[in-house]
Amino acid sequence: MMAIRELKVCLLGDTGVGKSSIVCRFVQDHFDHNISPTIGASFMTKTVPCGNELHKFLIWDTAGQERFHSLAPMYYRGSAAAVIVYDITKQDSFHTLKKWVKELKEHGPENIVMAIAGNKCDLSDIREVPLKDAKEYAESIGAVVVETSAKNAINIEELFQGISRQIPPLDPHENGKNGTIHVTQSHLQGGRRCC
C-alpha cells in the first residue's frame, strides 16, 4: 500500500482565465463551455501516484473572492502548491499574474511550489502572451510553467505532474502537524467523558 500524502493546492489568477475549468478537467475530465463564475465549488480532490507515494491533491478554488481583490489569507494556509493561471490571449492576465505571485509570497507558506498555467492554448491564433515570456518569468521565480487547454485537455495532467515532482519528499522528522485537530461530524458521536 502506497502512502497517501494530502497536498493542499490553491488556485490563483484573474477572474475568467479558467481556474475552475482546469480543475474540472483535471478532476473530472469534464469541460463546460458555460461554466458560471465560481459558485458552489469550493474544493475538489484527486489522487495521483508519484514515485512511491500517492499524492492526494485537495484543490481549493477562490470561490470568486479574487474578483474584488478580497482573497482571505486563510485561503493560502498550509498550501503545498499554488496553480497560478493566466489567459494566453490576454496580456493583462499575464500582467496581474505577477501580482498574484507577489500576493502569494506575502501571504503564502514559504516553501510553496508554484506552477504557472497559461490557459486557453487552444486559442493560440489570438495569443497575446508569448510562451517565451512566461518561461522567462517562471524561471525567475522558480516556478513550473506549462501552457494548458482545459477545453481540449492539453497539458492538464502534466501541470499537476509537474507539481508532484516539485513537492519535497516527506521529512520523517517533520512533526509540525502533530496534534492538529480536524473538527468534523465524526466527532459528534463518541465524546468519551473524563469524569
Binding site: 459558485i39 482571505a72 494556509r77 473538527v183
Partner: peptide, 29 residues
C-alpha cells in the same frame, strides 16, 4: 480548542462559505 493561525481565521472561514454560495466580497470598501 484554539484555531491554528489564530482566532482571525474563523470569520474568514464563514466568509469563504458565503462566497462559495455566491456572496460577493469587497475589502477596502
Amino acid at each position: 480548542l484554539f484555531p491554528l493561525y489564530g482566532q482571525g481565521e474563523l470569520p474568514q472561514c464563514f466568509c469563504r462559505m458565503c462566497a462559495v454560495f455566491g456572496g460577493i466580497y469587497c475589502l477596502r470598501h
